[in-house]
Simulated scan of single mutants.
Amino acid sequence: MKIKEIVLYVISMPLKDPFYTHLQTVSNREGIIVEVIDEEGYKGYGEAVAFSTPWYTEETVQTCLHMLTDILIPIIKKTKISHPEEVSHLFAPIRRNQMAKASIETAIWDLYGKQQGKSLASLLGDHNSTIPAGAVVASSSISGAINQIEHFIELGYERIKIKINPPTDIEWISEIRKHFPELPLMADANSAYTLQDMDRLKALDEFQLLMIEQPFAHDDFLEHAKLQSELKTPLCLDESIHSISDVRKAIELNSCGVINIKIGRVGGLQNAKEIYELCLKHHIKVWVGGMIEFGVSKAHNIALASLPGFQIPGDIASSSRYWEEDIITPEIQIENGKIIVPNGPGIGYQMNEKRLNKVLIDKRSFPMGKI
């Protein structure tokens, strides 16, 4: 793969509606789009999905920009790459910084698919032609949450996730269940609880949730195992999973029954696929999580979620869920609760350069030169 140039686009775009969690309210989304260009003019795209502040993980837009500019792109510049599978091994000596790593690794996967004339989904393996869509409700009020759910059901979304935290969790879920008794519903805690909340979490068993996601802190594998042994509802780990080593810990300790795989959080598509395969081997259910992304990252998520073991609808919504206008064309759409998996080369979407330039706040170009 003869890479000629890498370009970083730092962008900022307002959400249509604020996204509320107990940790942060996101009204404006910053991110980095990575463009990798080869000598033939093919362009591959990735996205750094870190937030502006370190409320989800320790990474931020600025730390990703530093890692890409000063560490990762120089490694790519001095290395000959023949296949995108090599990139995660190339970056392995660099500790953490998974979202920065994933942004360039996924761009190289997209470039490779375009060079080969194959879709990203087909490069990953046997895949489905559509995936089920799931939506996240993040409202500041229970009435707002119910209105969002009604809207998502009308649009055909097949699974709803609600953000929870004490002391309103039981009240909110009880009210939602009154309105939607059969709704496939899961609850995401974003580490809002501790073991002292054991009884409160056990009370959620009565609501027949698909799962409770990340109730405890990201490094609380033992605490999650203690809770899972007391719950009927499966626990799902999200922030805890940064590597395949984390998955092995969770399996060994019986910390969960489900794992949310986010490409950015685990350092790229290759790592995500290896985690997926390990989970299936050990009968751990998996689904693809979201990060309030722009269309580039969502396109990579669609390809990953098309693998047959992803049977739980992921956090993969239409472009219009968050944006007045996305940066890809065509925009991602929901049809009868499904998203069509593109069969065009690479991610199967084109960059909307006019929109990209409109939301651009910084651009950096890195010629590769001769290896």
Score class of each variant (00 low, 15 high):
P93A: 08
G144W: 01
D126Q: 12
L65K: 15
S27R: 13
M67H: 11
G144D: 07
R95V: 14
M67Y: 10
I11F: 00
G41L: 09
S52C: 04
G113R: 05
T53G: 00
T60V: 07
F91L: 00
S129T: 05
L72I: 11
L90N: 06
L90T: 09
D70H: 11
A92T: 00
A121V: 05
E86H: 11
L124D: 09
A135Q: 12
I142N: 13
L120E: 04
I37E: 13
G113Y: 04
T63E: 12
S119Y: 03
I142C: 13
K80P: 01
I71W: 10
T21Q: 02
I32H: 01
T21V: 06
K118Y: 12
E30Q: 14
D70Y: 07
Q62H: 12
L120Q: 05
E105V: 12
K16T: 09
Y112F: 15
H83P: 01
T106K: 07
I73P: 01
I37D: 04
S139G: 09
K114E: 04
I104Y: 03
Y42Q: 11
S27F: 03
G125M: 11
I33A: 01
R29C: 09
T53I: 08
P54K: 09
L123I: 05
P132F: 10
D17P: 01
P84E: 05
P132S: 14
K16F: 11
I75Q: 13
S103H: 11
D110T: 00
G46M: 07
P14S: 06
V49L: 08
Q115T: 04
S27H: 06
E85M: 11
E39L: 11
Q148R: 10
D38P: 04
I149A: 00
E58V: 07
P74I: 14
K43E: 08
G144T: 15
V34C: 01
I146N: 05
A50Y: 00
S143Y: 03
D126E: 11
Q115R: 15
E47R: 08
A48I: 04
I94R: 02
M13E: 11
H89R: 13
K101T: 04
A121P: 00
K78T: 14
I76H: 04
Q115D: 03
T69Y: 09
Y42H: 15
S119D: 00
H89D: 15
P54S: 07
A107L: 13
G125R: 03
L23A: 13
I104T: 01
K101N: 03
V26N: 10
Q98I: 03
Y112A: 00
K118G: 12
E85D: 12
T106P: 02
K78Y: 05
P18Q: 07
V61L: 03
I32P: 01
H22A: 12
I37A: 04
I33C: 00
A121E: 00
N128M: 07
K114R: 15
P93K: 05
L111Q: 04
S82L: 15
I104A: 05
Y20N: 06
A135G: 08
E58M: 05
P93G: 12
M13R: 03
L120T: 11
L65W: 09
G31S: 15
S129F: 05
A145Y: 00
K118I: 15
H127M: 08
V136Y: 01
F91Y: 10
K77M: 12
K80Y: 08
G44R: 03
H83W: 06
S122N: 04
